[in-house]
Write a protein that binds this DNA or RNA. Structure first.
Lengths: 445, 445, 445
DNA sequence: ATCGTTCTAGAATATTCGTCA
DNA sequence: GTGACGAATATTCTAGAACGA
């Protein structure tokens, strides 16, 4: 027991332990140098201390006395409880500094109580036992340790301390069980966080890779352009071709923006949560890309074809290529068809416009339709009516929308998903908190 | 108990009562003059005391702090049991020699126990209470005197309910102990997560920087190319046309944005805030796009127009288009058509503007179907039937969608997955809530 | 007190208390022993021993070490029996002179036995307990005092087990209450983490968008430049250079992706879910990249091809590339084969027209179909059947999927990697799970 | 009526002793 | 003779209870 009464001095009164000095480490330090103390304090100080209850002299002389007592105590009561022997020993000398195993005054008191000693004088640390009398060690045998009453051995008798009712027991168990479950959920949550983090890392990595890729391309472009531009008379030649091309392009671009607006704009009022944005952004990005892509493709194909029809094949090829590569979205398909048509100059396409396209590409529904539609439809009114009313958004818009709906629906379903990350939106949190607040039995009434 | 702990000093640590010094009369005298002590003991003694677990520093400096704490403690707990107030007060100052009415150390300890303080270190006189924390006086209110359990009040009633077996008792304790440990682990885990997050932020930042860098480069490229291509003959011609054209376009775009605002706002559940950032980013993206856009437009317009001024009409058309464009709804379809029309140079498109466009673009499934239906289905019926019904090969769209659905379904299954991050989708939340609600079953009845 | 003033040294083996010096108070004549000890054990040990309380002066340095150890032991097991804490502490330092209340070696041994320690080596004073292992203080909680075996005294009465005292009850309740609160705090913490994560996602998303935007621009640039470059003179010049360059590139990429697909796909346990969304986005990104890539490639190749038709091979090659790129799924394999076949220029491919188209472009399902369709669909039924049913159409979809699997697999793999951060690597998780599993009292019986 | 003080007791752990296989 | 253990005692910490302000 550090810092507390490493040593102490017992000062016994007339009949019992009377006083006793407890010291902290500082005191210990203070007292550990008794010799020094004696020297310093000298008589005046010593007497001063004495008047305060300390018997310094006793302390100094205790050693000899101790040994004496030792023998005496041992001889007189071999079968006596050690505590009694020790205590009597102390008593016998009126003053006996003694070390028990411990240095706790309270422990000593506890022992006194255990052996039936009672405090006599509330004002003083006097404990008495009628069989503990100076000069009458033979009485000591009448003092017994109080302990045979193992209360725990008779559980039912001890009504005190209400036994745990089944109800209570169950309650406790339930609580623990619940805590376990919740903790487990927390663990899962943490786990999912880890997963997410991992996903993040992956995305980050991919982004980086893409980035590098792009950087490289850019580099290439730069050098390519640099090289090319150095060629004379190029720019001047391009003029005419580009012209028509660009015109068309513009129109397309309108669409592009249009879609963009649709897609990208929602952001503001997006009731959805994060998930949505992600989905949206993704789709929107895709679409944009598609737009651009298609635009580019269109021109890539159209223009050249105008000037050099034979290139068509290549164009087509390219088209296919791009198609396969890029699009995961319907939009692209459409585009493809459009592009392709012009592309397929005088090949099979021409021979059978309606069908040909399909077989050719048919891959995408849109394409098919487009081709099909291209067929001279007589009463198109019907179609248009339906087209403009029911699912007007046919084009990219359509797709976009569908995309969105898809996303939205997901949202609704999997609330947890995006926002889900917050498995715990405000409402949930609150309710949880509330519930937890109610956890306390008392509040439940 | 004279000569025993007349005074003491509590030395509180960071979180709890940490130590406390008991002194005998001599010690009292010794310590009552702290200032003196400091002088006398000097560093060597002070450090010696410290190493023994005493916070001498606190002792020495306690005075100043004292006043502060005094007010604080008093203000915060007017209704608190005096014992707590006093104790906390002592605590608040790190060191406060305090005298209760009594001079019994044991009485003090008794009080500590009564209020739920437990000895922390068997080696030291340290008592702790989780709600007895330095700097958090508000927690004191959580400490209550323990006494409400008057066993004598209901001696007989409690007979019912089987007594808790030792096994059970141990089990409960073990459970709690385990929960504590696991909680500790969770806390550690959370900490590590924070670390990871920081790393992410850093990476993200770096990526952004790189990105910006690249964007700048690209911009340069664009302008470079633009400048280069802007060969004298071309540029001079384009001037006038572009002007008007761009103007319109700009207007369009204005509308576009306008609509954007409109559109975005409607979103029903605009409770989020996050979305906002998206919007922002979007806009920034938009700007970037504008840059490119303008560059492109420049070329689109300038070059062609130079050759064929009559294109103007188209421009107009486009304008109208753009107007309609804004709506992301069905209307967009129309738009599409319009756009396409111009596209189809002098082919069939012109012959039947209304229809042509549709087939051309009709990218979306619906569109496809519509067209297909309208088209005179030759012998393709078989194929088409299959295609349109089973639509196995669907286009990319199809696949994409299926993919999504797939994902969705998976989501539902694998909660953990995406949403998984949210270990806790509605169901879980609810169940948790439910469980928590049930936490106190006993009390409910 | 017999045996008190004996001194000895305990030398315990690797696993347990290794050594320990006991001295009696009377060794206060310690000087004699000290001298000897000092000589033998050297100053460091001596001072360490001194600080154990025997020698007042030495308390100075010992405290720190002591407290350190104390904290360590305490932290891991606040409720541990003092004996275990002490013993572990001794152990922890390989040599820790420690004083119990007594100085009896046998008493110490008795305690060891009480706590389940057994003598390991009859030749040495080594005692072992399987839950007393260096470096694993958390196991200490599994060591319990052996006591409740009062079977003989009151065998029948105690069958019920002692009733839960109010104290105990209160304690349990307090514990549970505390745990609840702490759990709540953890939940809040997690919540904040979610918020942060959301922020991250947003940022990531924005970055992606910007990136895509930029990619688009780049693409535009590419096409623009390409168009420009498409001038006879230029193209012819660049052709050769780009050609070789691209070819190498493609091949590389093929390998890369191919391996990637193989490696990443096998991952059996794709039980994860979270990764999925990431995968999706990833894949889409990848695709876009491919698009761009293809565009570039196209121009690099096509343009020249305009001048020199023989370039066809290149196209094919490119095709392969893209093909390889995308598929990581078995399905894709089919595609791959198809595509690849064509690869072998003018060889088997040609021999089988249906196939030829594929080789040319086949990259995308659509493309494939288109080609296939373009071919005189004689026995196309087969193909179409397969195509429409199995939808081998791999293409982007394919890629997406593969991507996902990829992601998933990584997830599985990386679990261990990151693990560091996850306090719960497999082992921990398991152990935790186990512990939690055991939490249920019922299971104990 | 609650809180503080005091004294004693309960309960768990620690120490010692002795026995038994 | 050793090692594990029962049992008694000792020590520690906390609670019960009485009493007074």
């Amino acid at each position: 027991m550090r810092g507390f009464d490493r040593s102490w001095i017992w000062l016994l009164g007339k009949q019992f332990v009377v006083g006793f000095l407890l010291c902290c480490d500082q005191c210990l330090q203070f007292l550990s140098n008794l010799t020094l103390l004696r020297i310093i304090l000298d008589d005046s100080v010593v007497s001063a201390l004495r008047t305060k209850g300390f018997f310094v002299d006793s302390v100094l002389e205790s050693e000899k006395i101790l040994e004496f007592a030792m023998d005496e105590a041992q001889g007189s009561s071999n079968s006596l409880p050690p505590f009694l022997a020790k205590t009597y020993e102390m008593f016998a000398r009126d003053l006996l500094p003694r070390f028990f195993k411990h240095s706790n005054f309270s422990s000593f008191i506890r022992q006194l109580n255990t052996y039936g000693f009672r405090k006599v004088d509330p004002e003083q640390w006097e404990f008495a036992n009628e069989d503990f009398i100076r000069g009458q060690p033979q009485l000591l045998k009448n003092i017994h340790r109080r302990k045979p009453v193992h209360s725990h051995s008779t559980p039912n008798l001890q009504v005190q301390g209400s036994p745990l009712t089944d109800l209570e027991r169950q309650s406790l168990k339930d609580d623990i069980e619940r805590l376990k479950n919740e903790k487990e959920m927390l663990i899962l949550e943490l786990k999912s966080h880890d997963q997410e983090r991992k996903g993040f890392e992956l995305q980050m990595q991919l982004l980086k890779e893409r980035f590098q890729n792009m950087e490289q391309k850019q580099q290439k472009m730069v050098s390519l352009v640099a090289r090319t531009l150095q060629k004379p008379g190029i720019a001047s030649n391009l003029g005419s071709q580009l012209e028509t091309h660009n015109r068309k392009r513009r129109l397309q671009r309108i669409d592009y923006f249009y879609d963009e607006a649709n897609i990208e704009d929602n952001p503001i009022g997006t009731s959805q949560t994060v998930a949505r944005d992600n989905a949206e952004s993704t789709s929107s990005n895709m679409e944009q890309l598609d737009h651009l892509d298609s635009s580019l493709r269109f021109w890539e194909n159209v223009i050249p074809s105008a000037a050099q029809p034979y290139i068509q094949p290549n164009s087509r090829l390219e088209l296919d290529e791009s198609t396969s590569c890029e699009d995961s979205l319907p939009v692209s398909c459409i585009q493809l068809n459009v592009d392709i048509r012009p592309k397929s100059p005088g090949i099979d396409m021409n021979s059978e416009p309606t069908v040909v396209p399909a077989p050719e590409v048919v891959p995408s529904k849109e394409a098919v339709v487009a081709n099909a539609a291209s067929v001279p439809t007589g009463a198109n009114d019907m179609f248009w009516e339906q087209f403009l009313t029911e699912n007007p958004g046919a084009t990219e818009n359509q797709e976009v929308q569908s995309e969105r709906k898809d996303t939205d629906s997901r949202k609704n379903e999997n609330k947890p998903v995006e926002p889900g990350r917050f498995w715990w939106n405000m409402r949930n949190v609150n309710s949880l908190a509330e519930q937890m607040g109610h956890l306390t039995p008392a509040e439940r009434t």
